[in-house]
């Protein structure tokens, strides 16, 4: 990465609360189909708020914690530079425009969902969106295919949630420790 050759700190710029808001606002508005790669480009390469290493390390934390990775990322970056105000600015910036867009689309859908063309169009869109989820599932499952224990846990979890329709909280309370213990003890 080019970030390693740059002199540390000297190239780094500390964003203000306003910078954080508009930076993440742009990200929210332009990030179609995954914001994370764009986030890296903005934060590391364009605005030099963080080095590549720092970005990856924060991402490691955000992936470890509950919540969307990019949502957690915005909070972590905002907090790091401008405390609570920065975290709020980054988070609001990130979700403001997408929220307005989805609500506008939702209003359109509510108004016209009796129109057969609109119904048909949304049926096609929904099918494609289901395809998107299927592809995400494939991409997460494929790396596990040679790990029978991991696959067994994934199948158990799938059956509990998709087939038996069990609530998520008890399912996670039971299966998460099993998942962690099994992958650690049986595959390490």
């Amino acid at each position: 990465m080019d970030t390693l050759s740059l002199p540390r700190q000297s190239q780094r710029l500390s964003p203000t609360v306003t910078d954080l808001f508009w930076g993440f606002f742009t990200l929210g508005l332009t990030g179609f189909g995954g914001v994370l790669p764009l986030a890296r480009r903005m934060v590391v390469e364009k605005r030099h708020w963080l080095s590549g290493e720092e970005f990856s390390e924060l991402l490691g934390l955000c992936q470890f914690l509950p919540g969307g990775n990019i949502i957690n990322m915005s909070v972590a970056i905002g907090l790091r530079f401008q405390g609570v105000a920065g975290a709020l600015a980054a988070l609001f910036g990130l979700i403001a425009a997408p929220t307005a867009v989805v609500i506008a689309m939702g209003i359109f859908y509510d108004q016209f969902h009796d129109n057969p063309y609109v119904t048909h169009m949304f049926a096609g869109l929904a099918a494609a969106a289901a395809g998107l989820l299927i592809s995400m599932a494939i991409k997460i499952v494929m790396p596990l295919r040679k790990r029978p224990v991991a696959i067994a846990v994934a199948v158990l979890c799938f059956i509990a949630i998709a087939v038996l329709k069990l609530p998520l909280l008890p399912t996670m309370l039971v299966l998460s420790p099993v998942s962690i213990l099994a992958t650690w003890r049986l595959e390490a």
Binding site: L133, M136, A137, I140, V141, L144, V149, A150, I151, V153, A154, V155, L156, C157, F158, A160, I161, A162, M172, L175, S176, S179, I180, L181, A182, T183, W184
Partner: peptide, 12 residues
């Protein structure tokens, strides 16, 4: 250790 859980949940 949580990756298999995520795999099961996203598939669900």
């Amino acid at each position: 250790g949580l990756v298999p859980m995520t795999a099961g949940l996203v598939t669900a």
